[in-house]
Amino acid sequence: MNIVTWLNLVDLLVCLVVIISAIGAAVHRNLLAATVFAGVVSLAISFLFLRLAAPDVAMTEAAIGAGLSTVIFLIAVRRTEEVEGKDQ
């Protein structure tokens, strides 16, 4: 049995955040909420990359997921709700 430190608890909690947010992004009806959930997934995954000693990948995920990805999804949702009608 390996030594279990407090950092393993941190890993477990952040993985729980990833799972809950991913299920929320896939299941939720409101598209705005789903976009926010996707942003949270990106944030938690970036921390896990840092924990796995990959700072380059963590910085890429941070640079793209913090601003660009969320905003592109929001613009797409806004432009298509004029076609489909709101909340569909």
């Binding site: 380059d56 910085m59 640079a63």
Partner: peptide, 12 residues
């Protein structure tokens, strides 16, 4: 850590 792609995304 970083490089071309990350810096370009930050500028965007």
């Amino acid at each position: 850590p970083g490089g071309g792609f990350q810096g370009g995304a930050v500028i965007a």
